[in-house]
Design a protein around this nucleic acid. Structure first.
Lengths: 203, 203, 203, 203
DNA sequence: TATGAATGAGACTTCATTCAT
DNA sequence: TATGAATGAAGTCTCATTCAT
């Protein structure tokens, strides 16, 4: 049984609290994506969120915690929405498409978070890092299993390698994704699915 | 006969100059890869290179120039060695393998530079950025042409997308590459070549 | 009735703010007069004002702004007090004496500011410079008009030259003024007035 | 008898020495006038003089010495040329005109030196300061005597005050002198002479 | 909850000067 | 004479964070 303390201990928060917290996180995401974690000063985040500098420390113990919450939220969402999607489909190919589309969907509408999550993984230390690592590993496991379902066993390719290969491709999108040109996420996902499953060459 | 002037114009430097410059660049590469560009203070680089802090400014006009030289060297090397390799092979598949192996070879022995080159692309401003962009585009063009040779035209996949997809996979290696486990670059390249050409699934 | 907003818009500051700001400005004036603007380090000013070094940057955006505020205050005061004096007197000679005495009065009790205002005019750049220039020009115009009232038209001397000539004499006082010896500002002003009006030679 | 050492001890200098020394001094004058003594780095001076940074220290022991030589040369020239002029004329008025024209002549063609000599008087310390002070006082005495010849004794104006008043006017010219507009130094000198002698008002 | 003010550490960079050749 | 390289001190400014109200 999880300790009840978690809930009870939470400070009584007024109706604005959640809204402001979210607004700070959004600002942080934007600034960190633009300037990197080190380059993103708490001052800039405060300015972007239109909140007083000191007041940020009411919502976060320190700067690191901001990044932590950002990554935690992103990876948790990613994992949860993927789980929901996977329940609904059965064939290996459809499931793989779900993986790709889910990742794409989330990050194409949260491009800042993509950067924050792939760039700034090493910026977190100690406990924060470990907690994030755990969620990332759960998400990784989920994806790896779907890759396994699709991969022809006889092929002499390492399963981990194949999975990481997929992640690489998916995470690289911030380098080229343009919401105006690539508005159709479904179509984009299909193309990547095809390449990943069958390669770029007719065999 | 090329004008002798071109060579003479370079400032006369003593015998230690090149060695120190290289040593600073190596130190910078290590620190920037570890801490990010913003997180890498010139102090830390100086300490790593065992050189006096202010003396660094004899070799570089500013911190940005350090990153610039790092990226310039990496992308130029990448491009030059690829060109040399491509001259020697003819079949599309062999050429694509050359692309993959070249990229892999370089970055597996210069893992720090890989980070510095993929993480810190946005950390450069103004003229520096433009110069790097140009070299990167030349390298990109080289790779794209080889992808085009391999890609079955009838397939409805965008050429740029396919190329970027490849880059994503290749650049993600710093997330998992372990020189102890993945010592055989040739084998690794072959695996990725297979996936990229034929997909993970027998069709 | 002026919009209340104008006043309300000013940031709310605590009771110590104005006092500290003034104390920093006074310290800055002293140090800059002694060491010149370039020679006056922010550290020295902070030490003189007995304030923490970085805290200075809470009161000023940058070192330039310090000089700007100093000059702005001096020239504005100079201009305002002169305007007040001029209202009260009518004859040209009395008005000219007001000009001289006003300039003298202010700078003899603010010798540091005199240096800061005549030495360091070129130390300001961009917007700061333009703002100061405007006030200085207004002050100059005021003085020039009084000179014009006094100057015999038939004399073939350029009005601007005559005015600048006066300014030169007035601003040179920091080279020799000694509050102990020249305590009687009224008398000093009278002497200069005589020279300026009638020359050093009986004609 | 002055020690012969002065001449004998002088290092043997090749034919370029004097030329380079003068070129450095000219560069220094320009840079110091523009940026102030503190703002003028030895590096900038070296660049302006197109000489190697370290090599400057062959010509000057330290930065202060550069300023010292600059001021020494200016005041000495000023004094010497004035002495030559004064020998040739006899009437008080002609002699006063010589003073004004001499000062004007020199500084209008050496505007940088004017700034360096009036701005940077306090930038010199110790022995350097004393040496310069001595020359300045000699020059001052020369001028004061000529003022005395012209000044009507009965007038209740202090002689020193009258002299300093003149210096103020003369030294202020860098604030407005424009070689294009005020090309006729003789005419300008005459105007100032008239004002100084007879005032701006017909009596 | 919110905010004005403060602070010590450390960022990048330039300085005058010297050393060795 | 000339110059490439080095160095310790100091420059301006920003940082994350805290304190007091």
């Amino acid at each position: 049984m999880p300790s009840a303390k978690t809930k009870t201990a939470a400070p009584r928060r007024n109706k604005h609290y959640e809204k402001r917290l979210a607004s700070i996180l959004k600002a942080a995401s934007k600034i960190i994506a633009r300037d990197g974690f080190e380059g993103a000063s708490v001052r800039k985040v405060a300015a972007e969120a239109k909140i007083n500098l000191s007041n940020i420390y009411y919502y976060f113990k320190c700067k690191d915690e901001m990044l932590f919450e950002l990554q935690k939220h992103a990876f948790t969402t990613l994992k949860n929405t993927l789980e929901e999607r996977l329940i609904k489909v059965e064939t290996p190919e459809a499931r793989l498409k779900a993986v790709i589309e889910n990742h794409f969907q989330f990050f194409s509408t949260n491009m800042n978070d993509l950067k924050v999550c792939s760039y700034e993984i090493g910026s977190l230390g100690g406990t924060y890092y470990k907690q994030i690592l755990k969620i990332r590993q759960e998400y990784y496991k989920l994806v790896k299993d779907v890759v396994a379902e699709n991969k022809t066993k006889s092929k002499r390719t390492d399963l981990n390698l194949a999975t990481l290969y997929l992640f690489g491709s998916l995470n690289w999108i911030y380098m080229w994704y343009d919401p105006k040109k690539n508005s159709d996420i479904g179509k984009l996902s299909n193309q990547l699915l095809k390449i990943y499953l069958n390669g770029i060459k007719i065999s």
